[in-house]
């Protein structure tokens, strides 16, 4: 290495520490804010643990109890209040909830997404739909279900409505983004030949995006299945989620809880694997 003397530099931008060494790290505003944030979080955590109110529970005993419960739940699963056939039937109901809400959601959002896509619609209409849809998406599905329960009553109707609403909000965004990726040239070519909007949508936009529409729909079905499990319990829509609630909160049957959990897990993993395959094949931009 050749030694370069400090006076070789044309412009002297280097900074030095108090000890006279050249600095390589500069403390800016953002670094200081970051450091303070971490520091205060650390202090809060320590303080939180320090002031735990344990109500006389021994930590070791409690840990043992929990581990024992988990062992019963997951290593000795069995069912006592219903048969395997019942469980399959209940899973069917949950899948049905998920399927119906996805189906309705897909149909509705297909039309809305056409008007939300910037290349197929006007700016005003597109922005209006996107604002509404973003608002709906920002509110969790559970809240929509509870809000709609005012009109529909707690039960499967409110659950379906709430899930459809949230699915539409999600799918309109996903679908319209797929539509926006359609090559502008294809649309131009058809417009130049005298084709109207409906011709272009049905014969160029939909065929081009069909596979990604399908993948998004399935992705949403997978989400809707999980939501339907929770909704079965929380909003009384029935299905495997309701059985889970009964087993845990009503019968305190840990073995049954374990069994149902495994059952849901198997279905969820199955769906997940399938949709990952779809995603890999057809969605290049799946980030949402």
């Amino acid at each position: 290495m050749t030694t370069i003397k400090s006076n070789d530099l044309t412009y002297d931008f280097k900074k030095k520490t108090s000890a006279g060494k050249i600095k390589i790290k500069v403390w800016g505003k953002s670094q200081i804010v970051m450091l303070l944030t971490f520091l205060s979080l650390f202090i809060l955590t320590v303080y939180g643990f320090w002031t735990f109110d344990l109500k006389g529970i021994s930590l070791i005993e409690a840990t043992n109890e929990t581990l024992y419960n988990l062992k019963v739940m997951f290593l000795q699963p069995s069912f006592s209040h219903f048969t395997l056939l019942d469980a399959v039937g209940q899973i069917g109901i949950t899948l049905g909830l998920g399927f119906l809400s996805t189906l309705l959601g897909v149909i509705l959002s297909l039309f809305l997404a056409l008007f939300a896509a910037k290349n197929l619609s006007t700016k005003t209409v597109s922005n209006a739909i996107i604002v509404v849809v973003t608002f709906i998406r920002a509110v969790p599905t559970v809240l929509w279900v509870l809000i709609l329960a005012i009109a529909a009553g707690l039960g499967s109707e409110a659950v379906i409505l709430g899930m459809v609403l949230h699915s539409v909000a999600f799918l309109v965004k996903a679908f319209s983004e797929s539509f926006e990726e359609v090559d502008e040239g294809i649309i131009e070519a058809l417009r130049a030949s005298g084709a109207n909007w409906w011709h272009i949508v049905t014969h160029a936009v939909i065929p081009t995006t069909a596979s990604s529409l399908l993948s998004w729909s399935f992705l949403r079905f997978e989400t809707n299945f999980t939501v339907a499990v929770a909704m079965g319990a929380a909003a009384g829509a029935g299905g495997i989620g309701f059985e889970l609630l009964m087993a845990s909160g009503f019968y305190f049957d840990l073995r049954e809880v374990g069994f149902i959990t495994y059952f849901i897990l198997v279905i969820a993993i199955g769906l997940e694997l399938f949709s990952t395959q779809l995603k890999k094949r057809f969605l290049t931009n799946a980030s949402a």
Partner: peptide, 22 residues
């Protein structure tokens, strides 16, 4: 067009018939 602007997922004959939409 320079980039042909065909619907690549569809067949040749379908693309040709697109010219009749007008």
């Amino acid at each position: 067009f320079q980039h042909y602007n065909l619907v690549s997922r569809l067949t040749v004959i379908e693309n040709v018939l697109h010219g009749r939409f007008g």
